[in-house]
């Protein structure tokens, strides 16, 4: 196997997010995502109750983990890190078994309703490959929430921001080494889920 160069990273500055969902809409349009499923979305949690209340919008997209659980378990290697470190899916090889979905701690993957194979956000790999600029969500964001780039390039915006801000990732304990960094993430809000457990 050739050496993978984890080139890109994404920085999400939540202090700037107004939960407009432009990223989600742009992604739907760019990637022809069918209705009923999403590759990227804004999870929004309201914390507290009136009058002490604060909303936490959190754009969610594939973390392109360096140590990805999904690529490890795919029985046919249909999902893998490409030459620039982005986790992609070969739709012609995928058998739609759903094992990658079961392994992903971020629940990013879904079965395409008509193609019946696994799909997820690939940071608009076709755009990157054709040198057509950053992913559609980054291009569409009106608030400058999303910064995309190569953190190993010291002159890049993302390198400067990653150096000067306090960042965190989602569920660091999984050991997946995700490459989406958040500024101002509320861990409690990020982990809030809606069914099961303590009736949460």
């Amino acid at each position: 196997m050739s050496e993978t160069n984890y080139k890109y990273a994404m920085l999400v500055d939540l202090t700037r997010c107004v939960a407009c969902r432009s990223c989600s809409v742009a992604c739907k349009s760019e990637n022809d995502v069918p209705s009923g499923v999403v590759r990227t979305w804004v999870k929004e949690i309201e914390k507290g109750s009136y009058p002490l209340v604060k909303r936490h919008p959190m754009p969610m997209l594939c973390n392109q983990c360096e140590n990805a659980a999904c690529t490890r378990v795919c029985p046919v290697k249909a999902t893998y890190h490409n030459e620039e470190g982005i986790v992609v899916i070969d739709p012609h090889r995928c058998i739609g078994c759903g094992y990658c979905m079961a392994a992903c701690p971020y629940a990013m993957r879904f079965i395409h309703p008509t193609r019946r194979v696994a799909e997820k956000c690939d940071w608009c790999w076709p755009r990157l490959r054709e040198d057509q600029g950053p992913p559609a969500c980054v291009r569409a964001c009106p608030g400058g929430v999303l910064t995309f780039g190569d953190p190993s390039d010291p002159n890049s915006e993302i390198a400067k921001k990653l150096l000067t801000s306090k960042t965190t990732v989602l569920k660091p304990e999984t050991g997946n080494r995700p490459r989406v960094y958040y500024i101002g993430l509320d861990d409690e809000a990020a982990r809030k889920v809606d069914a099961g457990g303590h009736g949460g």
Partner: peptide
Amino acid sequence: PADTGVRTMELTTITNAVHGEAF
């Protein structure tokens, strides 16, 4: 929240996406 007797702060989901089960 401590005064209102709530142990943890109340969290309400406004929006979230949940994909279907894998198995």
